[in-house]
């Protein structure tokens, strides 16, 4: 699969301070999570990809377009929802979204039609004729999302999309992100401090720390791989049991006190474990899949 975003030694410097250092990665997932503590360089990376911040070294491409040489073509393909308040206070939502659509190249009539559509889609249909200055924080977030998708971008960059949202509004935003992902016409980059949001929506995760990539993880593959790691807690002769499992192709390691850690081979049926245990009159007290949560991954990356 062609990469959506490819960073090749990308570095960004503000004065003497290096904000991003030699980033190298190729991201091709439908939804890409961007994680990191405050000051890690997430927003700077987004701004660099949008062409707002000049590169000090390296290069980067989005859908094969060089961010330095083909900025205009690239921006036509991208929708951006900024983290901070960004609106025009004395415009109604429909005028605002329409104007943003027109600036992206839509003809006025099409932009108006799309503005109505996307405002209904994000859930602001009934409030679309209100001035943006009168909107609540949650409504402003939705208006920002509407302006980001009005022109039908191929890549949607969401910077802290659930910032300041109450639980129902957060769930709504997550649902919208999932729905847009499922349309198949759009790739998403979700930059968030909330690991749960990223875990719920993203296939790939890039973790930054002090301007460096400290971890890249394909969550889909990790989820698949996690299902092959099993931990057992038994009462009985676990050595004989482990030998029988090894004979079936499992890699087993005794962890003492009746505990066994094992890696299952492909096409292994879990019922075999129960059958072998029953044959040996062995009690199975616990069977756990090993599951590295995104929080585990993140914390490991931060400790690295």
């Amino acid at each position: 699969m062609d990469p959506v975003i490819e960073l090749a030694g990308l570095s960004v410097r503000f004065g003497d301070r290096e904000i991003l250092h030699n980033l190298r990665v190729a991201l091709s997932g439908r939804t890409i999570g961007l994680l990191g503590p405050n000051g890690a360089g997430k927003s700077t990376l987004i701004q660099t990809l949008l062409g707002f911040v000049p590169l000090s070294a390296g290069s980067a491409t989005i859908f094969g377009h060089d961010i330095r040489q083909q900025t205009r073509e690239l921006r036509a393909l991208v929708g951006y929802m900024p983290e901070n308040d960004a609106f025009i206070a004395n415009l109604t939502a429909v005028s605002f979204v329409r104007m943003m659509g027109e600036l992206a190249g839509l003809p006025p009539d099409a932009a108006l039609e799309r503005a109505h559509e996307v405002l209904f889609y994000v859930g602001l249909g009934e409030a679309r004729y209100r001035l943006l200055g009168t909107y609540s924080l949650g409504m402003k977030q939705l208006a920002k999302l509407a302006q980001a998708i009005v022109h039908g971008p191929r890549l949607l960059i969401l910077d802290e999309p659930t910032n300041g949202l109450d639980p129902p509004a957060r769930l709504r935003m997550i649902r919208l992100i999932k729905e847009m992902k499922q349309t198949g016409s759009m790739h998403l980059v979700v930059c968030s401090h909330l690991l749960r949001d990223v875990e719920e929506t993203c296939e790939e995760v890039l973790i930054l720390k002090q301007g460096r990539i400290v971890h890249y993880s394909n969550l889909e593959e990790e989820r698949r791989a996690n299902k092959r790691f099993v931990e057992l807690e038994t009462v009985g002769d676990e050595k004989d049991f482990a030998g029988a499992l090894t004979a079936l192709g499992c890699e087993c390691v005794g962890a003492g006190l009746g505990r066994i850690k094992m890696v299952l081979p492909a096409d292994f049926e879990l019922r075999e474990i129960y059958r072998l245990a029953a044959d040996r009159d062995l009690q199975l007290r616990r069977l756990n899949y090993r599951r590295d949560t995104l929080e585990d991954i993140f914390l490991k990356a931060m400790e690295a």
């Binding site: 036509a76 190249g105 003809p107 209904f120 729905e179 349309t183 016409s185 759009m186």
Partner: peptide, 25 residues
Amino acid sequence: MAVYKRTYAAYEGALTPAWSRFLIL
């Protein structure tokens, strides 16, 4: 697309010429 169909669809229509867009403001 009718407004009651609250689903997302990408825009695939024609675009205005780039030189004329500053007149939108």
